[in-house]
Amino acid sequence: MRGRTALLVLPGLAVLLIGFLIPSVAMLFAPPGVSPVEVFDRLGQMLTDPYDQAIVMRTLGLGLIVTVVCIGLGYPIAYLLSRSTSRWAGVLLALAIFPLLLSSVVRTFGWLVVLGSQGAVPQLLLSLGLTDSAPQLLYTPLAIVLGLTQIFLPLAVVASYSALAQVDAGLDEAARGLGANRIRTFWSVVVPLSGPGVVVAATLVFAGAVTAYTTPYLLGGSRQRMLSTQLYTYSSTTIDWAAASATALIMTVLVFAVSGLSGLAARRGATS
């Protein structure tokens, strides 16, 4: 019986090893013709070189801003939807999930139409007489934050919603019945109980935002380089394996560290 169970797993495991685990480990530490020492040398250079440092800091900074904005907008959406009895709540929830199914290229392209020099926002500012010439909005940090928020907000809504749906609405009523006002109920009952779920949501958004490629590429271009666009340049344009591996290492460590920390935080939140 045990032998047969192993047979069920083996084909999938083989594909997982060849198509994912072995190549990933090999790439991070020993790219072809490059020794692990060189990868770590390049990593050391990147963490001290001002140009590379700026890219790491921009990636981290924009990732943090996007995370705060996504939770700041996504949690209220999830809260209102989870506490609403209106039949429109289902439709609104579906509208928030739907963008997840739509290609990130299509969604990001929308911002080119909105923010491009002939796009809606610059033309509106011009016709209102607020500026003399169409303002440059593309290839700015603002464009990247807007683009990444659009991409990851649905994720924040879905994750917050499933956390909030588990908080019994009866507890809200109990707190109100005991004399707490709406704001106090929200901050001392709803927020603490849904906290671990929000940590999960924030982790998903941050990990996605610091590794996303399409949005920084189209809305940041070469003026606002991030780790992901830099990784692509190293691997496809300059073919610098050591630098590509070092960049990939930074990205991977960043994502693993944040996931690990949030796992710890969620567990502590759940037990206290």
């Binding site: 198509g19 994912f20 072995i22 190549p23 990933s24 090999a26 790439m27 991070l28 790219p31 072809p32 990990a207 590794t211 490629y213 992901s228 990784l231 692509y232 691997s235 394996w241 590509a244 990939a248 990205m251 991977t252 994502v255 693993f256 996931s259």
Partner: peptide
């Protein structure tokens, strides 16, 4: 969990 770009680079290279 692993960034897709990292997986892509790994598969391309290896």
């Amino acid at each position: 969990i692993v960034p897709e770009l990292v997986v892509g680079l790994a598969l391309y290279q290896q």
